[in-house]
Write a protein that binds this DNA or RNA. Structure first.
Length: 471
RNA sequence: GGCGGCAUAGCCAAGUGGUAAGGCAGAGGACUGCAAAUCCUUUAUCCCCAGUUCGAAUCUGGGUGCCGCCUCCA
């Protein structure tokens, strides 16, 4: 088995074969850093983080690039409103991006290029396009000439005529074709600008991704991802810019995630129906948010709701219980225990194989969560039925969870031992167990309630009383 | 108008020809001083109609409903 990906360019699932054997160049469109990102924006960050991790799990060396758009209309508008520079605004929200993305368990990219730091590459690309007759200057603006690029519309499967007929774009007299788009915008009053062969100005939005992705990943990328709303025009334009300039295929696999909906409607800043990732993180554990995102296929729309997140949270608690029970069993294992658990131990590699199979099929994280919980069930059943667990089973189980978690990133973090607190809790538990021996249940329940008020949950098991923090 | 997506149990959601994964919630049982956790049992003929097929949630045609893109947007 090997990975098969749904390629939006061909609208079919295709075997994944990278340009360079063993290596993957992966570019994902990043945020415009004019505000906190919302939970809908978080979807691609999380799902493509998982795809990247899966590629690494599968043995590829991945170069993952995600840009920050730091010069753009909304950036300028907000900076002016707040009386700060665009650069200051960008610095601020890049910092905020990392806070939230880190909290969500999104691994950092290998490169996070900024448009404003790649003016040479951008201007170089625009110059090439003009030289090759694919772009033209008009009063300090430079436009891409869509009619010079026959493949235009290949990604969105629309002809120029079809695209135009439904278009709601403003007529611009200086454009040769209504769908021509800006590569370079002449400076306006109150806007940051950079020198260029066409005068002072700033880059259009689409050009930065073409220029920066090719700089870091070469002229043909393996994977380019983003939200499905970027298919047109953003990604269509990226293809036009890159391929008109290089004459080579720009991207082998285009993948787009479905929207996150709220009240059955797309969550977006312009609709005003958004919840920032930060606000979501205050309400729900990050791992529950990740699990929620992974519980549906990445191309399907998912509906964000309080109920869905609470369900995800409960599912995580089940995983936590299993993981902590497994940890207890491992910590407390004794020498000379049984070693006849081979059959059970063998279940885990088989489950991992299943995980691999479903993930290889266009990255089916929803099915993968099923496999994860098959593992949970297997562990729970084994621990219940086995008084003296076979270390081989425990190790196989732990390996299974760690391997899957290297991709999904939803296991609880390692318990941080706050020494003093633990000792105090242990003491109370001992006192409670004394009371239970005396059958002084009112005292023992009092202690349990006291701990519960501190978020400590007790479990009486044949091996003694366990405690854990309730998240 | 063009392009595209979705419709599976109370809720979330896999499954694309051989009689429905997984999670949440519910019910009954086991265990427990009571709990908690866990285990066992239990809860669906897959939007509707017609067709193809020995056989369809899965293919074809038609219908209904919902959503998105074609403008900034993950």
């Amino acid at each position: 088995m090997s990975l098969v990906l749904y390629n939006d360019l061909t609208r079919t699932k295709e075997p994944f074969i990278p340009v360079r054997k063993g290596h993957v160049g992966f570019y994902s469109c990043g945020p415009t850093v004019y505000d906190y990102f919302h939970i809908g924006n978080a979807r691609p960050f999380i799902v493509f983080d998982v795809l990247r991790r899966y590629l690494e799990y599968s043995g590829y060396t991945v170069t993952f690039v995600q840009n920050f758009t730091d010069i753009e209309d909304k950036m300028i508008a907000r900076a002016n409103r707040e009386g700060i520079t665009v650069r200051q605004l960008a610095d601020r929200f890049i910092g905020e991006y990392y806070k939230d993305a880190d909290a969500l368990g999104v691994r950092r990219a290998n490169h996070n290029p900024l448009a404003t730091e790649h003016m040479d590459e951008i201007i170089g690309l625009v110059s090439t396009l003009i030289e090759k007759g694919h772009a033209y200057e008009a009063d300090g603006d430079v436009f891409f000439d869509v009619s010079s690029f026959p493949k235009y519309g290949a990604l969105s499967k629309q002809s120029l005529e079809e695209l135009q007929s439904g278009a709601r774009i403003e007529i611009n007299e200086r454009k040769k074709h209504p769908l021509d788009f800006a590569l370079w915008k002449a400076k306006k009053e109150g806007e940051p600008s950079w020198p260029s062969p066409w005068g002072e100005g700033r880059p259009g939005w689409h050009i930065e991704c073409s220029a920066m992705s090719m700089k870091y990943l070469g002229e043909t990328l393996d994977i380019h991802s983003g939200g499905t709303d970027l298919t047109f025009p953003h990604h269509e334009n990226e293809i036009a810019q890159a391929e008109a300039a290089t004459g080579k295929p720009f991207v082998k696999y285009w993948i787009h995630n479905g929207y996150l909906l709220i009240d059955k409607e797309k969550m977006s800043k312009s609709l005003g129906n958004f919840l920032t990732a930060r606000a979501a993180l205050e309400k729900f554990p990050a791992r529950a948010i990740r699990f929620f995102m992974l519980s549906a296929h990445y191309r399907s729309p998912i509906n964000f709701s309080e109920e869905s997140l609470l369900q995800a949270k409960s599912a995580m608690e089940r995983l936590d219980n299993c993981w902590s029970d497994l940890g207890h069993a491992i910590t407390n294992r004794k020498k000379g225990e049984r070693t006849e658990g081979n059959e059970t131990a063998a279940l885990f590699p088989a489950l991992e194989e299943k995980f691999r199979a479903v993930m290889d099929d266009d990255f089916n994280t929803a099915a993968a969560t099923g496999v994860l919980f098959d593992g949970v069930k297997t562990v729970n059943t084994y621990l219940k039925e086995s008084d003296l667990p076979d270390p081989a089973v425990l190790e196989a189980a732990e390996t299974f969870f760690r391997k899957l978690d290297s991709v999904m990133g939803i296991l609880p973090p390692e318990a941080s031992g706050e020494e003093g607190e633990s000792a105090g809790i242990e003491k109370l538990i001992a006192e409670r167990n004394e009371a239970r021996k005396r059958k002084d249940f009112s005292r023992s329940d009092e202690i349990r309630d006291e701990l519960a008020a501190r978020g400590i949950v007790l479990e009486d098991t044949p091996e003694g009383t366990k405690w854990k923090k309730k998240g």
